[in-house]
């Protein structure tokens, strides 16, 4: 673990930054959970309420970026501190986009519920579970500088991709069989794509964790090299 900074005010700022990131991640994660629950349960009201929680996450992003900028200006941090702050700003952006994706899912949930669609949402709850777990693990990896955990998150990206393909093919099959309306089928496929995007952001967070610890940019490396 990293030893404490000589300047305790700076140390306090670093702690606050980590807390903000954690809080923002928790908010995004809960939005995601509620969005998928609203979808599966056909609860249009819950979907609308959840979508509104987007604002708090947006505010978190603004706060974190402001704090990062102020810390760069005031302390001119170096090395690991510099990498942490640099990554924190990117993380905030990833988390904000996850919350946008949750809003998108809420919109589909509202649409489908209002349209009287009642599933089945094969693979969607599972995808959501995997995606959220990736998000939580990536955050833990980032905040505890645990690169093993981050590497592990990267491997799970394939699992999400597989699930996405399965949702798409299942829904396509149903549409073709005339079980469901085309627009509804596409809406479910969209939800799967949103969840896949959530996993992409979780992967990005894990990559930031690795960058922060090793100053190693793994974002565009081939998967085999990871």
């Amino acid at each position: 673990m990293i030893s404490a900074h000589t300047d305790r005010a700076f140390e306090g700022e670093l702690r606050l930054l980590r807390e903000r990131l954690q809080r923002m991640a928790t908010r995004a994660d809960e939005m995601l959970a509620d969005a998928v629950r609203a979808l599966v349960q056909g609860d249009a009201e819950l979907a609308r309420q959840t979508a509104h929680r987007d604002r708090a996450v947006n505010q978190d992003e603004v706060d974190i970026d402001e704090q990062c900028l102020a810390m760069l200006a005031r302390w001119q941090p170096m090395a690991s501190d510099l990498r942490l702050i640099f990554a924190a700003s990117k993380l905030a952006s990833n988390l904000e986009q996850i919350s946008d994706l949750a809003v998108n899912i809420c919109e589909r949930a509202d649409e489908l519920a209002t349209g009287g669609f009642r599933g089945p949402y094969t693979f969607i709850p599972h995808m959501s579970e995997v995606g959220r777990e990736m998000l939580r693990d990536a955050m833990t990896a980032f905040l505890t500088a645990n690169t093993d955990l981050a590497q592990e998150v990267l491997t799970r990206d394939d699992e999400i991709d597989d699930l996405h393909h399965q949702v798409v093919s299942t829904q396509t099959e149903r549409i073709r069989a005339g079980d469901i309306d085309v627009r509804q089928g596409i809406a479910v496929q969209n939800v799967a794509r949103f969840l896949e995007n959530v996993a992409d952001h979780a992967t990005a967070i894990a990559e930031h964790a690795i960058f922060m610890v090793h100053a190693l940019d793994v974002r565009h490396a081939g998967k085999r090299e990871r």
């Binding site: 900074h5 000589t6 941090p77 090395a79 510099l82 090793h214």
Partner: peptide, 17 residues
């Protein structure tokens, strides 16, 4: 200044000295 090799360098330049 971004990724020193030695732990002592890291501690010094980040003010953890």
């Amino acid at each position: 200044f971004t990724k020193p090799n030695d732990r002592r360098t890291e501690d010094y330049i980040t003010g953890r000295f």
